[in-house]
Computed example of a mutant assay.
Amino acid sequence: MTVTVSKGLIRRLLALSAIVMLVPQVSAQEPAAVSATSPESEIQQFCTNIADAARDQRYLLQKQELEKLQLDVDQRISVLESRKAEYEDWLARRNDFLVRAEAGLVDIFKTMKADAAAPQLEEMNLEVAAAIIMKLPARQSGLVLSEMEPQKAGMIATIISSASDPNTSKEPS
């Protein structure tokens, strides 16, 4: 019995047998490829798995830092408020002292004669001297100014007149 097989048929049979032999090998390799992961993919998977936990931890650390900063700011505010209270107390005592001292000083100059008061007022700060002269009775103020050097008396009179000027601002700008 002679079987004649064409060349095309033989080629097809060989190709089919090669495919049949390769299919089990390919299917056997696929699970191995899936189970054996590369180090890079393991790292990627690890990073993906811990990303939420790392973000939460970072937020927690930031929150703790902000709370610490807030506590520091609150402490500084407390110190500033206590210093402000001390300063306001000191300022109130100083102003009270100045009012009493000024009243006593005016009383001293009220009892002095004009020729004795004038040289002393000339040596004082011109603004203080002007304030004292303004509080003296008008007759005594005139006598004291007449006993002073004309230049200083003129400067004091200028200060007094500017103090009574309604266009002069009472608040420093």
Rank of each mutant, 00 (worst) to 15 (best):
L105P: 09
E122Y: 03
N125W: 15
Q57R: 14
V106E: 06
D96R: 14
R93S: 06
E86H: 01
E123K: 13
E88Y: 05
D74S: 02
P119V: 01
S78P: 06
E102F: 11
Q70T: 08
S82C: 00
L69A: 15
R58E: 07
Q57K: 13
D107H: 14
L71Y: 06
R93K: 09
D72Q: 08
E86T: 02
K113T: 12
E88H: 03
M124N: 09
V106A: 07
K68Q: 09
G104E: 15
F97A: 07
E67N: 00
M112Q: 14
L60P: 07
V128M: 13
E123G: 09
E67D: 07
Q62L: 14
Q57A: 15
E67W: 05
D89Q: 04
A101S: 12
K113Y: 11
F97M: 08
M124A: 07
A103T: 15
L126M: 15
K68W: 04
Q70A: 10
Q57P: 10
V99L: 06
D115C: 09
K84I: 01
F97P: 01
S78Q: 00
L105M: 12
D89V: 06
E88N: 03
E86N: 01
A103D: 15
A114C: 09
F97D: 08
A114D: 10
Y87I: 06
I77W: 03
L126H: 13
E86W: 00
L91M: 04
Q64D: 09
A85T: 00
K63W: 09
L71V: 04
A117E: 01
Q70K: 10
G104M: 11
Q62I: 13
I108G: 10
V99K: 05
R58W: 10
V73K: 09
N95R: 03
V128D: 12
V99A: 02
R76G: 01
E65L: 07
A92H: 06
I77C: 00
D74H: 01
L121G: 06
A103E: 12
Q70N: 10
R58G: 07
D74E: 06
K68R: 10
Q62E: 13
V73C: 04
K63Q: 08
Q70R: 13
Y59Q: 08
F97K: 15
A116L: 12
V106G: 06
L66C: 00
Q70H: 07
V128T: 13
E123S: 12
A118S: 10
R76K: 02
T111S: 11
D107C: 12
L60V: 07
N95M: 04
I108S: 13
S78L: 01
S78N: 03
E102P: 08
L91P: 04
Q70M: 10
Q75A: 15
L80P: 02
R83W: 05
M112G: 08
E65D: 00
E102R: 15
Q70F: 11
F109R: 07
A85F: 00
F109P: 05
K110A: 11
S78M: 01
V79S: 01
V128R: 14
R94T: 02
L61W: 07
L61F: 10
M112E: 14
A129E: 04
A118W: 12
R94K: 01
G104A: 15
K84Q: 04
G104W: 12
A103G: 13
D72P: 06
Y87V: 05
K113N: 15
R100L: 12
A118V: 11
Q64M: 06
W90Y: 09
